[in-house]
Simulated scan of single mutants.
Amino acid sequence: MKVWAVANQKGGVGKTTTSIALAGLLADAGKRVLIVDLDPHGSMTSYFRHDPDSIEHSTYDLFLHGGQVPEGLPARLLLETGHERLSLLPSSTALATLERQSPGQSGLGLVISKSLAQLWGQFDHAIIDSPPLLGVLMVNALAASQQLVIPVQTEFLAVKGLERMVNTLAMINRSRRQPLAYHIVPTLFDRRTQASLSTLRLLQSNYPEHLWQAYVPIDTRLRDASRAGVTPSRHDANSRGVIAYRALLKHLLMQQTAAQVA
């Protein structure tokens, strides 16, 4: 199973949309895909018409066993998404309490890794939607992943958030046996605005080795897909946003293959 995390320490950059768009395209291609919602806001869970405020069981349950994951628990938490090859490990607002609980517990940083190990044979890909906060949930997402996707809205404040994310990744990589590869993805790009154009140039100048050399444009069809509760590619396979995400997916798959060969 290939495991990717989608993360940024700034919200509102297209993180959940990126996770769902990539997952939907993989599922359309016949892959068995798991999406993992680790954000207490539960945007991914809400996208597929599950309520993170009232859901009975969620990824929060995985963290209630002292760093261990009871056999069979992850499989019992899986929910349907309406796409026959796409399954969801949902979030709940209870996840927000983990940061207060975690200082008194050890071993919580590998809970998601242990959970995915139980599901390894059931899925070809897993994509983890991480919260915009450095804490036990983001640490879990990064520890479990083989590649990191960092969506960055093409505006100045998002670039400042990217700097924090890259610093966090450098810290995390010091404790990993193999550094986590990361790919910066410009999102919400609007070529009509000077802010988008100048931010894209700044990203190209400052992060040439890790920047995907294209961008995801502003596309109302992505918002329409969210409103309909279906993956963007099933809502409109030829929209500008889906075409961009299809190119991004091809790039990520090629990068992972190259890394494995190396």
Rank of each mutant, 00 (worst) to 15 (best):
E56Q: 13
E56P: 04
G82T: 00
K250N: 13
N140G: 05
T81Q: 11
L22F: 12
S106P: 04
L180P: 09
K160P: 14
T231Y: 14
P179M: 09
S145G: 00
Q101K: 11
S198G: 04
A27Y: 15
S43H: 13
T220M: 09
S54W: 13
R32D: 06
L73Q: 02
G30N: 02
Y207H: 12
R85G: 11
Q122M: 13
V149D: 03
P217Q: 06
L110I: 10
S130Y: 01
N167L: 15
G109S: 13
L116R: 07
L142K: 06
Q213R: 12
I55T: 06
D124M: 03
Q68G: 01
L88V: 03
R176S: 00
R49S: 09
T97N: 11
V230Y: 03
L38I: 09
L142W: 13
L110S: 13
G135Q: 07
D28M: 12
V139L: 13
Q213H: 12
A27E: 12
L34Y: 15
A244V: 00
A23M: 02
P132A: 02
M138F: 14
P131F: 09
L119Q: 02
S145K: 02
T154K: 11
T257H: 08
L162D: 03
G42C: 07
Q146P: 03
V6I: 12
L253V: 08
A75R: 07
E84A: 07
S92E: 08
P131L: 04
G11V: 03
V166G: 04
R100Y: 15
R227E: 12
A21N: 02
G42E: 00
G161Y: 10
I35R: 01
G121D: 12
R246T: 15
K250Q: 15
R177D: 14
D190C: 01
L64M: 13
